[in-house]
Amino acid sequence: MPNLYQSLSHSRWNCKYHLIFIPKKRQKVLFGQIRQDLVKIFHELANQKESRIVEGSLSIDHVHMCIEIPPKYAVSSVIGFLKGKSAIAIARTFHGKTRNYNGAHFWARGYAVSTVGFDEEIIKQYIREQSDNENRLF
């Protein structure tokens, strides 16, 4: 049986979350090059917060992911970081913004998140079923 827990200096943890968020006004904009770039961007940003995307799916108008976040980070701060920095990257790459971009928002303000617990395989299967293989983040 694989080790289910990660370690920090004074704790052992297994904190996974099912996360869903959408572009502003649920626009159908997650296709083509944006989709390919977002896969890399999300993984890099998660890594910066010592987090890991376990499973993910990009549909044309929403994002599903199962993400592992250490307990030393607030879930809301990691999600805000992912959405904020990815919006900046999209603005710079696809909308020609070059400096201190913080104007129009790419993602809608809210998100849905729930703890995965011992239902991890069920959640991962659900995310896989949301789209075909080309849309998966992992």
Rank of each mutant, 00 (worst) to 15 (best):
K25S: 11
Y73K: 05
V29H: 00
E44P: 00
K85M: 14
E68Y: 01
I122A: 09
S51K: 04
D37I: 00
Y126L: 08
V113W: 06
S7C: 00
L30S: 03
S86G: 07
I67H: 01
K97M: 13
H105A: 11
Q48G: 08
R109I: 10
I88R: 08
Y101F: 14
L30A: 01
S131L: 00
I88E: 14
R52I: 15
H10M: 05
E55L: 02
V63G: 10
K97G: 00
S59W: 00
D37S: 10
N102W: 15
H64F: 15
Y5L: 15
L8E: 13
V54N: 04
S57L: 05
Q125V: 01
R35T: 12
T115V: 12
I22N: 10
Q125C: 06
L19C: 05
V113I: 15
N47S: 03
N3V: 15
R109G: 15
Q130G: 11
I127R: 02
R52V: 14
R52K: 05
K85T: 10
K85Y: 07
K28N: 13
R26I: 10
H95G: 00
H105L: 02
I69W: 05
Q125A: 03
K85V: 11
R92V: 01
G56I: 12
E55Q: 13
S77Y: 03
H105M: 12
Y17P: 01
M1A: 09
H105C: 04
G96R: 08
F31Y: 11
M1P: 00
Y73F: 15
A108H: 02
V75S: 01
H18A: 08
C15Y: 13
K25I: 12
R109P: 06
P2D: 09
I20Q: 10
S114G: 01
V113A: 08
Q125S: 12
E68V: 00
A112S: 14
L82W: 09
K25M: 10
I67P: 02
V29F: 12
W107R: 03
L8S: 15
S9P: 07
E129P: 05
Y5D: 07
Y101E: 04
V75L: 04
D132S: 14
N100I: 14
S131E: 10
Y17F: 15
L4K: 08
N3R: 09
A74Y: 08
D61P: 03
L19D: 04
S9K: 12
H10N: 12
F81I: 02
